[in-house]
């Protein structure tokens, strides 16, 4: 675990030393603001609630999750530093966990920087603070899943673009599985119970409740279990590479 913390520290430092991270944060924040105010019609809706803000997060992460995580392992593999990293006295699991946590914390910083949204609703009306807290919690957990998927696909290939594309495809499957517009289409083709089963693996399905202020054990379990599965797969892929 101590080793994982070292990797995490090194990675976090790496993020803020590169201009890419700043550009990343700028685009993330501008897009989040734009989607909330323009597409979500936050101001026109006149409700002191962050639902129009959170509603776009699954879509936002669909782009940012793979983009942020594509370099986690591909870059190390391409530049050969992976050999160096794996020759250090740390386990693959520690390395995977450290890198993943660093990326997750980075997204957390991005989320924290959306604080003007909270100030806005507090200024305009009297929002439900617990609901806002739950929204942020849910968004952070969901980001973790996107990043875990990206981390896994990044370990599969040396090419960052390939990793990005595979991560987007995998994420898209889980995104669509719970996306209400898509599940409604499915309803006309499949029996309701089958649609519900498919939807139960979707990001949206597990984000809808927590975004509104309802914490469901099933939702929290979903996020952590999918994250765990992806990171486990990540470790297995790296172990296979190491052995090769």
């Amino acid at each position: 675990m101590k080793q994982a913390a070292n990797v995490l520290r090194r990675e976090i430092y790496g993020y803020f030393a590169s201009p890419v991270a700043y550009i990343f944060l700028i685009i993330f924040l501008m897009l989040a603001g734009y989607l909330t105010f323009v597409e979500g019609e936050f101001y026109e809706g006149r409700q002191a609630s962050l639902l129009p803000f959170f509603y776009f997060h699954p879509i936002l992460y669909l782009l940012f999750g793979p983009a942020l995580s594509m370099r986690l392992w591909s870059e190390e593999r391409k530049s050969g530093t992976i050999q160096l990293l794996l020759s250090l006295p740390i386990t693959i699991f520690d390395a995977v966990l450290g890198k993943f946590l660093a990326a997750w914390i980075f997204v957390g910083v991005g989320l924290l920087l959306t604080f003007p949204m909270v100030l806005t609703v507090v200024y305009l009306g009297s929002p439900d603070y617990w609901a806002i807290f739950c929204g942020y919690l849910g968004s952070f957990l969901m980001a973790g899943v996107y990043l875990a998927i990206g981390s896994f696909t990044s370990a599969l290939t040396k090419n960052q673009v390939v990793s990005f594309v595979i991560a987007i495809l995998l994420s898209l499957v889980l995104f669509l599985a719970g996306f209400p517009n898509f599940t409604r289409q499915l309803e006309s083709m499949l029996p309701l119970s089958a649609v519900n089963f498919i939807a139960s693996f979707g990001f949206f399905t597990h984000f809808l409740s927590i975004m509104r202020g309802v914490i469901d054990l099933g939702d929290v379990f979903y996020y952590f279990s999918v994250m765990g599965l992806m990171l486990f797969a990540n470790v297995l892929v790296l172990e296979a590479r190491k052995a090769a």
Partner: peptide
């Protein structure tokens, strides 16, 4: 976990 239905409504109302 979904079947358990363990949930907590954190909203004010």
């Amino acid at each position: 976990a979904n079947r358990l239905g363990l949930r907590r409504d954190m909203t004010d109302e």
